[in-house]
Nucleic acid binder design. Structure first.
Lengths: 211, 211
DNA sequence: GTCTATAATCAGATAGAC
DNA sequence: GTCTATCTGATTATAGAC
């Protein structure tokens, strides 16, 4: 009350958002070490040394970017029960992951860079959030298998396969586009990729593609 | 003859190899910008500023590392004809890729970092080598499909799916191990992963796993 | 041919003016 | 609360001694 009012608070929030957006872009393009604070400042239209006024240091800015990404990460497979139809659930999950990979590739790429480096900043997330999430979903898959709803497969490797095949179109976009001699993905690509991946994964566990 | 003899030549080659090994390790761990020339020199047991005597600059060292990786890359799917059995060919390819991912993850990770950054140094390779290679293999897959040997699928996306699912165990090793609460892959993992991936891919295109 | 000393640049971070 | 000027250290690269 005494030190801040609403406009100042929201101004600060706004600049922080600008910086997070700029940092996400640059960290995902050139990695943690490749992106400098001055580049991020320039991208966010904030005076260079001012970045450290909004974020204590480079590490904390990087962490804040990762936190924001992780927060909107594991959506799309929530509120699922053993009574649901695995074909529908898996198909929709694959479809949404591919849509995300193509429309918001930067987040996937930054996440990938972090893991490739040995996940120095995401150890806690992987241990405390990702691990229990995966165990929960694995149990669900196993319940479907035990009920004869789909063929037996190691549930964790099934999850890894879904993540790898879908995120590939974000992380390796440069390769996919170059090989196909395209400048960017076309609208029809989302559908085409979804069909190919869904065919492999769903048929692979004995399910038919819905509709 | 006048300026070098065999021992000096081989001494130079030896140091270059040491430097390439060290650079591959460090570039794959922390990326192009994260690995400094002094770290690489230390890792290779070569005086710091001496690295630039063997390689013109940081870029050319990085390029040399990439060239060496790419040279031993696309093996495992050579000398294949439409007369071969797709199930055997694909199974062996998947198996060898997973073995490579687990035993030599650094190469896959460095390659992935480079592509994530937009492939600044691998554009030429992707355009001139990878693209025709993929087109050739795609035509082969299509011949199998046309002959009724496997179910219809876009051959390029099939290749991407094989690469993504197998390389995932190298690139995202930190995540896979953390989630499974392991320090490193066990011998049995290669077999287990191969079975899971082969099941998805092969069953996914209507093939049975060989033997 | 090999290595030491050093230059030139740029990074992240800080002190203090407004 | 915001921003300018500056510091310290690390980086790549070079010049030149052995």
């Amino acid at each position: 009350m005494t030190t801040t009012d609403n406009t100042k608070q929201s101004n600060r929030d706004k600049k922080q958002q600008q910086l997070l957006d700029a940092a996400e872009k640059l960290f995902s393009q050139t990695g943690y070490d490749g992106a400098s604070m001055s580049m991020i400042a320039k991208e966010a239209s904030v005076p260079k040394a001012n970045v450290l006024y909004y974020f204590k240091n480079k590490d904390s800015l990087y962490e804040a970017v990762l936190d924001r990404i992780v927060a909107q990460w594991n959506l799309g497979l929530e509120n699922i029960t053993p009574d649901d139809d695995p074909a529908v659930v898996l198909y929709n999950y694959i479809k949404s992951k591919i849509k995300l990979a193509i429309e918001q590739p930067m987040q996937s790429r930054l996440f990938a860079s972090e893991i490739i480096r040995g996940a120095p900043y995401l150890q806690g997330y992987l241990r405390n959030s990702a691990r229990p999430w995966i165990r929960e979903k694995s149990a669900l898959f196993q319940a479907w298998i035990d009920a004869g709803k789909m063929n037996a497969i190691d549930p964790q490797h099934l999850l890894f396969a879904i993540w790898s095949t879908t995120q590939y179109y974000a992380d390796f976009e440069a390769e996919v586009l170059l090989v196909q001699n395209k400048l960017e993905y076309e609208n029809s690509d989302v559908e085409k990729i979804t069909q190919s991946i869904a065919q492999l994964i769903l048929t692979g566990v004995g399910l038919a593609i819905p509709e």
